[in-house]
């Protein structure tokens, strides 16, 4: 059995090779939140059953930053929601797997995303429904820090507290980058903890690439009556030095020369690269 460092490296290899075969992916976004997804699914922080994906008492995850769809599909493949053969159809002709996760295309995707700022409203609806039905489960919404510029997120931030959604956990993949530049260059005042606490949420901060730490924090329940933000400090492009913290890699695949660096750092053999 692989230890989790090896397993995560293996997942990064698989994401990269799948993206390469498909032609493209938001790799840096995928690598940024991989440990978060791994913790939720492979460390079983979430209660779910791939054999019974509609199980009412399941925990729900919404990948609001849909660009990391390939990371989600890859982790869900490892968790048993889809076969490696199906995963390999990513972006192939007549595939059901595209760049953004879609509920139409795979059982277990709770809601289709892609346009930013939609995940929290949908998650609030699901968390409210869980409460109406007295289901003791949680709804997780994974958002990016650039995404917090969308106004609809803040409609949700106000409302989640008003509704007392203590079954709602928003995980912030806080890598400090957005498409064109840094989040700080864009909005200047980046103080998520203070902002969310001012809106009445409880806030935790973790190293978003440390699975043990993520597991410890995400396994605990919310403070009664409060929605919760977990700020996961991450590195966009984590695992490949060339991509790390460089906005250039928001939506770009490596050229021939760069591919050698990817291969070396991800531990891919020449044969796997062919």
């Amino acid at each position: 059995m692989l230890n989790y460092d090896d397993e995560l490296k293996d997942l990064r290899r698989q994401i990269f090779l799948t993206a390469r075969k498909g032609g493209t992916s938001h790799l840096a976004s995928c690598f940024s939140c991989l440990e978060i997804l791994y913790t939720l699914y492979i460390r079983h922080v979430m209660n779910f059953d791939p054999e019974n994906p509609d199980m009412p008492e399941r925990d729900r995850l919404i990948l609001s930053k849909g660009h990391a769809g390939l990371a989600l599909y890859t982790v869900m493949c490892r968790a048993g929601y889809l076969t490696p053969e199906k995963l390999a159809t990513y972006l192939q002709p007549r595939t059901e797997l595209g760049g953004e996760p879609s509920r139409r295309d795979l059982k277990g995707i709770e809601t289709s995303t892609g346009s930013l700022g939609h995940g929290l409203p949908a998650g609030i609806g699901m968390a409210l429904a869980q409460k109406m039905d007295a289901i003791p489960a949680r709804t997780f919404v994974l958002v990016g820090d650039g995404e917090l510029q969308e106004g609809s997120v803040w409609e949700g931030v106000i409302s989640a507290r008003a509704f007392g959604l203590d079954n709602l956990v928003m995980i912030l993949d806080c890598n400090g980058l957005q498409k064109m530049c840094t989040v700080e260059e864009t909005i200047s005042f980046v103080e998520w903890r203070r902002k969310f606490e001012a809106f009445g949420w409880s806030v935790d901060e973790v190293d978003g690439h440390n699975v043990d730490e993520l597991e410890r924090v995400l396994s605990t329940g919310n403070v009664t009556g409060l929605p919760r933000l977990v700020i996961a400090h991450t590195v966009k492009g984590k695992g490949v030095s060339l991509m790390e913290n460089n906005p250039l890699w928001h939506f770009r695949m490596p050229n021939r020369k760069e591919s050698k660096i990817f291969a070396a750092e991800l531990g891919l053999t020449q044969e796997e690269m062919n």
Binding site: P56, T111, G125, M126, S152, G156, I158
Partner: peptide, 23 residues
């Protein structure tokens, strides 16, 4: 009944989440 306040995007998006959850 739920009043979402002056937040039409939220209300519409949350309605989708509720419908997916069987409401």
């Amino acid at each position: 009944m739920y009043n979402f306040g002056i937040s039409e995007q939220l209300m519409t998006g949350a309605a989708a989440g509720m419908a997916i959850a069987g409401k």
